[in-house]
């Protein structure tokens, strides 16, 4: 049994319409996603904008209502769990995309970081302050910064504050939704290094959401590729990057800019080939509605969404 097990997760949002705002249709933001994540590993969730990555993450920690499916964490069913003082909420925390807007600008760092502590643990003011200082030290911020406000920090530092808040309750699993997308390369490097460091130190498990495949490759052991709410492919980082099988994955991998300017023309040609292949074989890989088929195993670790044989 793996550490986090998501089974056939579906999250459908109602579309309201009519004069009285009745439900007229559903957006199938997540439509049958299964994830199985081992302890201490990092699982990457990739896909284009709107493919349902954030919704998946939010559904797991209970911020989006799950339409159907199951979420099992450490052997306990936490599907649609109330985000109150449960053990599971303590153990699963989320880091949000935007370090600029996910921190309340009117609150001091100490209040931001201690917020989860206040909800879950009864600490005296002094203990609380001490804990916050320890946490800040852990994320590499000076203890004096507890009285500052978010705007007094750089982007990378702000993201670290977000991380400090996320690890305050010593969680086991962190869902990181595009933690570095808003940061520039050097700050991004800083945050990624740091996330790797604390992973080892605290034995954390990550669900890492990003649309930057370079970052995903750097961070993740296993990867799932999402398209319109469904998986098109799942496998180890090696499976996905060296041996992509689904045409959508191929296209995604081909689109990654190469850091070597000498390979530019080669890359461009390759990309064009993939694009042609994509256009030609689109109907082989997607059903009549343009959605992915069910996943079929192609090896022990590697699953691809292909039409059923026969």
């Amino acid at each position: 049994m793996s550490y986090l097990e998501v089974k056939d997760l579906k999250v459908h949002f109602p579309i309201k319409g009519g004069i009285f705002g009745g439900t007229v249709d559903h957006i199938k933001a997540v439509d049958g996603v299964s994830i199985s994540l081992e302890k201490g590993k990092t699982y990457g969730l990739v896909g284009e904008s709107g493919s349902g990555k954030s919704t998946t993450g939010r559904a797991i920690i209970g911020l989006n209502k799950i339409t159907s499916g199951k979420v099992i964490f450490d052997g306990v069913d936490i599907t649609n769990i109330k985000r109150t003082k449960s053990e599971a909420t303590k153990n699963i925390q989320m880091i949000f995309q935007d370090p600029y807007s996910s921190l309340n600008p009117k609150k001091r760092v100490v209040d931001i970081v201690s917020e989860p502590l206040r909800n879950f643990e009864n600490l005296s003011r002094k203990e609380e302050r001490k804990r916050v200082q320890e946490l800040l030290e852990l994320v590499g911020l000076s203890p004096e910064s507890i009285l500052k406000y978010p705007h007094e920090f750089s982007g990378g530092q702000r993201q670290r504050i977000g991380i400090a808040r996320a690890i305050a309750l010593k969680p086991k699993l962190i869902i990181a939704d595009e933690p570095v997308s808003a940061l520039d390369v050097s700050v991004q490097a800083q945050v990624l290094n740091f996330m790797k460091e604390i992973q080892k130190e605290l034995d954390l498990t990550y669900l890492f959401i990003s649309h930057d495949l370079g970052v995903i490759k750097h961070m993740c052991d296993d990867i799932g590729i999402m398209y319109k709410g469904r998986y098109v492919e799942e496998g180890t980082a090696d499976d996905i990057f060296s041996n992509p099988q689904h045409i959508y994955t191929k296209r995604l991998v081909a689109a990654i800019p190469d850091i070597d300017p000498n390979k530019r023309d080669e890359k461009r040609k390759f990309r064009e080939e993939v694009k042609t292949e994509y256009d030609q074989s689109y109907n082989d890989y997607f059903d009549a509605e343009g959605l992915a088929y069910k996943l079929q195993p192609v090896s022990d670790t590697h699953l691809v969404a292909l039409p059923e044989k026969g």
Partner: peptide, 16 residues
């Protein structure tokens, strides 16, 4: 040096 580089296997990225 701070870019996650697909060709170089590196655990740590350079930080300025």
């Amino acid at each position: 040096n701070s870019v996650p580089n697909s060709d170089k296997e590196q655990d740590k990225l350079h930080v300025i």
